[in-house]
Design a protein around this nucleic acid. Structure first.
Length: 391
DNA sequence: AATAGTTTCAACCGCCGGGCC
DNA sequence: AGGCCCGGCGGTTGAAACTAT
């Protein structure tokens, strides 16, 4: 490791200083705008950091090329922006990723693909670059190793592994044609997921098709099982995903910029990649399901806002039901409270009327009893109003 | 101790879309 | 309409740190 886990800002600065000594005065390039000045490239010196930091704290964000000029930096605006966003920003969280963050990244990546900025937006204090590096250097390798291990020990009795196996059985035996598997997977699960509206922004979805086995390759994985995977980890951890920043012990999963920091327990705001569910609702496309939900979202398809909001509500419900059922299957000692609220209130963070729900005995089964197909089939028949909290 | 191989991550590159003229 | 600028994004690079031999 270059930087020890948990390295604080002080250590990081020292590291940068050491590097800068060796790079000083060698990364100066011609200004391609013909102004006659020189623009520095490469690692930032502490002096440059200080200039940029002081300028940003004094003047705030503006046009980056102006910032570069006015702060007295011989850098392009782009470089300043990158340095600020990835390193100097005061709200950055330093140090190694927590297990909760790691699980969340894995989960979000299963939904969003390589859309690092969108993943980063759901991990307060983390940058897209950081997450991307973490994924490429650590998670990808770990998942690959895990996959190899699981292949070598097929009798693994871990319930989550069993669940994942169960969920992926139908996908791993498909053909091997690159680029077509993803859609085949959807079809196998009875999906009707098409997104013809945004060929560019949907590229990550299609990237899933680069692989033939969701658990046996590098890159995008966990086509369908991951919401449960993540849920399991978070519930078993029992702590807050963002415990450094809030004291509630709440877990916000896949929150849309709005983690429920004040709410004890678990507030489910999961994306919607559970296979079988989307099909039932003719989901227009993954990105819609994850991005168009809130009234303050950034998507551009205003013509379908109502449709997607309604869809979101339904999907939220279905995922909550599914996840709740999974929890019930795997719970040991924790008490479960399932809250109930009308469909038209689902997904409205901060405006949820919680009622106690006793839970259905029919949902409870041991993980060794899991019949995944029956489980999925059952989900669509569950009550529509479920949410839950973990005491 | 030396060195070759590997890992990590800061920073750059190229592309894209939006806004402005 | 077309060119230019800017911000944002994901992919890639390469130097430094670390590890194995």
């Amino acid at each position: 490791m270059r930087k020890p886990a948990g390295a604080d800002h002080h250590n990081t600065i020292i590291m940068v200083k050491e590097k800068v000594v060796k790079n000083n005065n060698i990364n100066v390039i011609s200004n391609n705008k013909g102004s006659g000045g020189k623009l520095r490239k490469g690692l930032w010196s502490p002096e440059e950091d200080e200039k940029l930091m002081n300028y940003m704290l004094t003047n705030g964000q503006g046009c980056w090329s102006d910032i570069a000029r006015n702060a007295g930096l011989q850098r392009c605006g782009k470089s300043c922006r990158l340095r600020w966003i990835n390193y100097l920003r005061p709200d950055l969280k330093r140090g190694a990723f927590s297990p909760q963050e790691e699980q969340l990244i894995i989960h979000l990546h299963s939904i969003l693909g390589n859309r690092w900025s969108q993943i980063a937006a759901r991990l307060p204090g983390r940058t897209d670059n950081e997450i991307k590096n973490f994924w490429n250097s650590t998670i990808k390798k770990r998942l690959k190793n895990n996959n190899n291990n699981s292949e070598s020990s097929p009798n693994n009795s871990d319930s989550m592994s069993e669940l994942i196996k169960a969920t992926t059985t139908t996908t791993t035996n498909m053909g091997s044609a690159t680029g077509t598997i993803f859609m085949q997977e959807y079809e196998v699960a009875g999906m009707n997921c098409m997104d013809s509206s945004r060929s560019s922004s949907c590229s990550s979805m299609h990237n899933l098709g680069q692989f033939t086995n969701p658990f046996n390759h590098e890159g995008n994985i966990f086509v369908d099982a991951n919401p449960l995977f993540n849920l399991s980890a978070c519930l078993q951890q029992g702590g807050g995903m963002d415990d450094q920043n809030n004291s509630s012990g709440g877990v916000g999963l896949g929150g849309f910029e709005d983690y429920d920091h004040d709410h004890a327990g678990v507030l489910m705001e999961l994306p919607y990649a559970v296979m079988g569910l989307e099909n039932d609702l003719s989901v227009p496309g993954l990105e819609h399901n994850t991005g168009v939900i809130r009234s303050n979202n950034n998507h551009h398809d205003h013509d379908h806002d109502d449709e997607y909001v309604n869809l979101d509500k339904k999907l939220n419900n279905n995922n909550k039901q599914l996840l709740n059922q999974y929890y019930l299957m795997n719970q040991t000692s924790s008490k479960v409270e399932v809250d109930e609220y009308p469909l038209d209130q689902v997904g409205e963070i901060g405006n949820i009327n919680h009622h106690h729900w006793e839970g259905s005995e029919s949902f409870k089964m041991g993980s060794d009893q899991l019949d995944w197909e029956a489980f999925l089939a059952n989900v669509s028949s569950l009550p529509n109003y479920l949410d839950f909290h973990l005491d």
